[in-house]
Design a binder for these strands. Structure first.
Lengths: 94, 94, 94, 94
DNA sequence: CCGAAACGGTCATAAC
DNA sequence: GTTATGACCGTTTCGG
């Protein structure tokens, strides 16, 4: 079902990559790993903030609910915007 | 944005929150939302990088596999390092 | 790291299952597959309904938007309920 | 793509929707929501079955693997069947 | 066909 | 520790 060049096996047939391609690939890997590292750090900082709030006596469950509610409000507004666009498009305004 | 009687404020017994507490709470919400915004932006940048790689003809599935394997290798190496430290400590080398 | 009984290898060591366990397992598999079959059938029926609407000249994009909006409204109401419960609990009403 | 005056497009320009179209639209929404409700219920029942299996000591990860493998086998058999039919037809046996 | 968006599954984390 | 909740990833599907 799979042959040697199967994309799920990135090790296969490395000779098919030119030097330039290999260099480009290395750069992509580096960029991705940098971004992922930063994302992981942000996740850790978020945990710290919640921990700090908890240590000061705030109810993290309620705090998370506030964050969730505000995010959902933003989503609702975006959804309303989409519906408006859809409607305008339907009546030929776009 | 929220006052003490605001029913949308789920934090316990609003009247029990001092002005200082309310201000602190607002700061926590702001910090959390800032961090989450940055995290979302990083996620979008990651999508863009993968998109750029794809547009240059790279197989993103393979690329993701590479990233995954390298992360796992890093974990494995960290784990091996921990085991080594543990053993060294056990034999009094640390 | 993995031994023969490792849970990630469900084929390993079948002799570890008693007859009763094996029978119970077969029943679970049967129940799950029945439910998944029904779920797949519902998905197909949904596709048919959208197709029928489209064939009658309805804009499926708008139709999907309506469905999504109504679902989100329901979610919003559920979320508001949760916030109310959280608030009531906070002020000691529960 | 859509002409605002196109009477055959029930979505465009809501005022252009006849009573019959509106009623039809309501029926589509109702049918879709019913099907989605049933689909959600099946998903919940599946969760319950896995939970019950887990409570009886079965490894749900292994159980899921069994389900996945059996589904794949079914797909493979169906595919083989299709190939066989194709070949039989090609040699005039059907 | 491609790109985007919905879906389901899996995993990590948090509440109980 | 166990269930419940949410994030993430991969897959599929739909519209262009």
């Amino acid at each position: 079902m799979y042959d040697a060049d199967d994309a799920t096996n990135p090790v296969a047939a490395p000779q098919a990559l030119t030097s330039a391609s290999k260099e480009k690939l290395r750069q992509f890997v580096a960029r991705i790993e940098t971004l992922e590292t930063e994302k992981t750090e942000l996740a850790e900082q978020l945990k710290e903030v919640y921990g700090e709030a908890k240590s000061l006596g705030f109810d993290t469950k309620a705090l998370r609910a506030v964050i969730r509610l505000r995010k959902q409000d933003a989503n609702d507004r975006a959804e309303a915007e989409m519906m408006l666009d859809l409607y305008l498009e339907a009546v030929g305004e776009i």
